[in-house]
């Protein structure tokens, strides 16, 4: 048995597949691909699949890591070829490699966000005000969580999770490039940041597309 990290690009219609459904999709995909997978040894054996960084519904990603465990001596290239052949529209396998970093190394994620407003003025105001708000270092938002099965709401300062932030307006559009905390210790969901900015600026875009570009380690190098 050996561990492999599958790198997945998720875009277009596939961004509406939720994290739980992605699990189910891949459970079936690995069966279609006829890989020799390692199965868990419980009462109900199933292949080992672990998405390291669940992606929010509606977001795209350039590179999602999925850890799997396989048996036998099929080459990584063959596994990539077989998986690629059985994917639904919008999901591409960009690489299959031995994991280099442990999952706990994930510290940040880089995002590309496109917002479209109803008019140029709203766009440029949103870009300007967001830059100022982020630079001020204070932006509170309510973060919903769960504790012991109960829903909880706690107030957080989203700026604590922003490592870098650029926003520029271009006509009705606003482009944001941001690096946000990710991983198990602390993480900031890009949707939470956006909704906090919308609430603060009282400006709402008509269309949003969030794309995760890459995952980073604490030292700023690529998570691999």
């Amino acid at each position: 048995m050996r561990s492999l990290r599958v790198w997945i690009k998720k875009e277009g219609r596939a961004k509406y597949i939720s994290h739980l459904d992605m699990n189910r999709c891949f459970m079936r995909a690995v069966r279609r691909a006829n890989l020799n997978l390692w199965y868990t040894e419980g009462f109900n054996p199933h292949p080992y699949l672990n998405f390291l960084t669940p992606l929010s519904l509606g977001q795209e990603s350039e590179a999602e890591p999925l850890d799997i465990k396989v048996e036998g001596d099929m080459t990584d290239g063959e596994i990539q070829k077989r998986l690629s052949a059985v994917m639904p529209e919008g999901i591409t396998i960009t690489g299959v490699r031995e994991p280099v970093c442990p999952a706990s190394d994930i510290a940040a994620a880089e995002y590309d966000v496109l917002l479209e407003f109803s008019d140029d003025e709203s766009a440029s105001r949103f870009a300007g005000e967001s830059r100022r708000i982020v630079a001020s270092g204070v932006l509170t938002a309510e973060k919903q969580g769960k504790k012991g099965g109960r829903k909880t709401v706690k107030e957080v300062n989203v700026c604590d999770g922003i490592l870098s932030f650029e926003a520029s307006a271009d006509g009705k559009e606003v482009h944001i490039k941001a690096t946000l905390a990710a991983g198990n210790t602390s993480s900031l969901n890009s949707s939470l940041l956006l909704s906090a900015l919308e609430a603060k600026t009282e400006l709402s875009p008509e269309y949003v597309n969030i794309r995760r570009l890459r995952l980073l380690k604490a030292d700023g190098t690529d998570f691999r």
């Binding site: 219609r13 509406y16 597949i17 939720s18 519904l57 509606g58 639904p88 529209e89």
Partner: peptide, 11 residues
């Protein structure tokens, strides 16, 4: 929203 997007495998 996945109900309304299409693009499933084998469609």
């Amino acid at each position: 929203p996945g109900r309304y997007t299409g693009g499933e495998l084998n469609s």
